[in-house]
Design a protein around this nucleic acid. Structure first.
Length: 485
RNA sequence: GUCCCCAUCGUCUAGAGGCCUAGGACGCCGGGCUUUCAAUCCGGCAACACGGGUUCGAAUCCCGUUGGGGACGCCA
């Protein structure tokens, strides 16, 4: 039988990396076993629900390349179905109406906690007589539906990752499966959906392990076979707590906007709690081929930004420069480094070339976009501190001499090796070292102190820009022209 | 508080009783290369949480402790 798995986010926030990792494991499992990956939105909570978040979540998945085979389904469109199943349980005596008011329940819960007991429903409405029911109805109370949970024995969860987990049924209570306002609760809707959608493997985050015995009660009451369960460890922030806003970037979109490549994030997420020998770099195909739930580490994992950056850099170094060039272009425009019109004037090959030129020292698309600027436009942003340090008065003569030498060179000779030879010969004749002038030159040409080799930089910039920028720097040193430039 | 889960370098992990003087990766430190910064190469620091068992032998099995996480809603 082909496995059917699902990822079921609730549209109450953006897709964060923890959810993305759970979805990835589901997706990998489905792909590996030629099964079906279903996407389902659990939006039964009308108050907290934000429909405008659905599309961004879908977009996050598209960006990651985690594409669903079925759905998205919406629980909010399936209320009639849940009602049908709930009524069946009521009819069969597996569920009952509870008239207790939320405030009363809340009070009992608080009391139990204070008395250091586990808060449990006391079964007040479990065996109500029809007279009592009528009295409550007459009071205008709207009943919720509770399941009649077993009051003794054990419920066993056989988990593909955790193994054999036992729950004492006395720990569980008659929980609500249907609210008084006619909407199902989470645990109930999940089971009805998983049953009706034919889900064979429930792969979800660890935090749901405690919900599993409750859901098993529902499977049993409904008379359906259990799926396989696999509870994957959580992804924690650096401080070992659940990932949240205060931890900085946690949403998938935030990584995208920082210039992280989807293949890097997928690779990193896959390696969080899972491994395969000593391998670190995995293509999508390798992940599908090698992934297995059995080799998922049960311990929670901490999201490590540094390793993600290392992976991202790897994919920048080894990726197709044309594709990366397009991504950098989009990035530069989105960030306002260039206008769309300016970007449009730069040929595609130039974008690819600049990526290729800078990729060894840029770890993100953002760094690439920033660093590419001096090679794409004739605008230079000199850092005043850098200018002060390197474009000093004693360098003016030498810069001038170099400018003259370069001016005399043909376009055809404007190649790194030739440039280096000419400059070195001149320096030698003057008894000067390259070291003295290399950094001032670089600053003159790019405005920054780091980058590819000086002569490669000259070649890449081309004769016209090199000469112009050297002249501009010399003027700067001599105080000619606007210092505000 | 109660229940459930988890526990190897700072981080991700390898490890299914002898192959472990605990391996790899990121990061960090030092060095080579070099006009800078990277990339790259070489080297280094760094962990079995603790205590009891079981066994000829334990990172590995069992129990306990500690620590961390999660759950305990008419949230999901």
């Amino acid at each position: 039988m082909k496995p059917r798995v699902r990822f079921a986010p609730s549209p109450t926030g953006e897709l964060h990396v923890g959810g993305a990792r759970t979805a990835l494991f589901n997706w990998l499992f489905a792909r590996k076993h030629r099964g079906v990956f279903v996407l389902r939105f659990e939006d039964t909570d009308i108050e907290r629900n934000r429909p405008e978040l659905v599309e961004p979540i879908l977009e996050s998945f598209r960006w990651l390349g985690i594409l669903w085979d079925e759905g998205p389904y919406f629980q909010s469109q399936r209320f009639a179905l849940y009602r049908e199943y709930a009524e069946r349980l009521l009819r069969e005596g597996q569920a009952y109406r509870c008239y207790c008011a939320p405030e009363e329940l809340e009070q009992k819960r608080t009391q139990a906690m204070a008395a250091k007991r586990k808060p449990k429903y006391d079964g007040h409405c479990r065996n109500l007589s029809s007279e009592e029911q009528k009295r409550y109805e007459a009071e205008g109370r709207k009943p919720a539906l509770r399941i009649k949970a077993p009051q003794s024995g054990m419920t066993i969860v056989e988990d593909l990752i955790r193994g054999h987990v036992e729950f004492d049924n006395t720990e569980l209570d008659d929980f609500i499966i249907f609210r008084s306002d006619g909407r199902p609760t989470y645990n109930f809707a999940v089971v009805v959906d998983d049953v009706t959608m034919g889900i064979t493997h429930v792969i979800r985050a660890d935090e749901h392990l405690n919900n599993t015995p409750k859901q098993i009660f529902i499977y049993e009451a409904l008379g359906y076979a259990l799926p396989q369960f696999a509870h994957v460890p959580m992804v924690l922030a650096k401080d070992r707590t659940k990932l949240s806003k205060r931890h900085g970037a946690t949403a998938v979109f935030e990584f995208r906007d920082r210039g992280i490549l989807p293949e890097a994030l997928v690779n990193h997420l896959a390696r969080l709690g899972w491994s395969c020998g000593d391998q670190e770099i995995f293509s999508r195909e390798e992940l599908i081929e090698k992934f297995s739930l059995e080799s998922v580490n049960p311990a929670a994992a901490i999201f490590d930004d540094e390793k993600l950056l290392w992976l991202n850099h790897h994919y920048i170094k080894t990726g197709d420069p044309r594709r990366l060039g397009k991504l950098v272009r989009t990035f530069a425009v989105r960030r306002g480094f260039l206008t769309e019109a300016e970007a449009g004037k730069i040929p595609e090959e130039r974008w690819a070339a600049v990526v290729d030129f800078l990729k060894e020292r840029k770890r993100t698309l953002l760094e690439l976009a920033e660093g590419a600027l001096p090679f794409l436009t004739d605008r230079l942003n000199y850092d005043p501190k850098v200018v002060e340090k390197f474009l000093t008065a004693d360098k003016a003569t030498l810069l001038q001499e170099i400018a003259e030498i370069l001016q005399a060179m043909s376009e055809q000779n404007f190649r790194a090796a030739v440039l280096e030879e000419r400059v070195r010969i001149h320096l030698e004749s003057q008894g000067r070292a390259l070291k003295e002038i290399a950094q001032p030159c670089r600053v003159a040409l790019t405005g920054v102190t780091t980058g590819p080799g000086l002569f490669e930089t000259m070649e890449f910039l081309g004769k016209a820009w090199v000469i112009a920028r050297l002249k501009r720097a010399i003027e700067k040193i001599q105080g000619v022209g606007s210092p505000a430039r």
